[in-house]
Design a protein around this nucleic acid. Sequence first.
DNA 1: TTGCGTTATACTAGCAAAAGTATAACGTAT
DNA 2: ATACGTTATACTTTTGCTAGTATAACGCAA
Lengths: 120, 120
Amino acid sequence: MGDENCVRLAYKIWLDNNGKVFGDGPYDLLLRVEQIGSLSKAAAEIGMSYNKAWRLIRAIEDRLGFPLLKCKVGGASGGGSEVTSQARRLMQQYRAFREEAENALELLYAKHFNEKEIKG
Amino acid sequence: MGDENCVRLAYKIWLDNNGKVFGDGPYDLLLRVEQIGSLSKAAAEIGMSYNKAWRLIRAIEDRLGFPLLKCKVGGASGGGSEVTSQARRLMQQYRAFREEAENALELLYAKHFNEKEIKG
DNA sequence: TTGCGTTATACTAGCAAAAGTATAACGTAT
DNA sequence: ATACGTTATACTTTTGCTAGTATAACGCAA
């Protein structure tokens, strides 16, 4: 049972191509990879297993058709991953779109539901 | 693997209160109940089992805090359901909001992704 | 009193998605 | 040669959701 009058707007927005291509989760993960230079560390930061993070990135790359990460295996540091320029471009576009979409939706929600009361 | 360059916008929008409260599915179902006067027939129309439809309505009513349907059991016709005035009000608000939201999102998507190419 | 169509609800089963476990490969430094 | 931290990937397990099945209650009509 829900709290009496706490109804609120909820939404999920993503890019899709026969499956989820890009959304808030991948955006956040890539942002961290960009800063740290390691997918496993980025995943650990947000409490995600490396395995899950890797599967996520791979699935997206398959659907997107271009690589998100340029990965190195072995070496002094063990290896690492850096975000490709294509991925950085996508991230920028997505962030801008996402922000404006959120603003627009909240505005419309207020217009239709808050100015008039939801309960009849 | 996804088709090369068929990436498109996808989204789900709903009202929420510790679980989904209202969205496109319930809206469509209630619309049919309004016309036919029977939940079981309305469900059958869209290939949904009565059981599923009933659970859907009940869950929403729990979270929403007011009844969507006024139901009669037994009688010559077996019974029937009619949509409450509160539910009708909600349906109207949701439909108007939903339409404007869709327009706004498509517009923003075009602005950020179609005018510039998605592939780097 | 039997039958019918509807609402009302519990219980069960199956299935798909999510996530964990295990393991290999790699390359530098010591 | 060994160790270490990372990427790479298969396999297994679990879990949460979905949906079907069954059954009862109800009230009118024949």
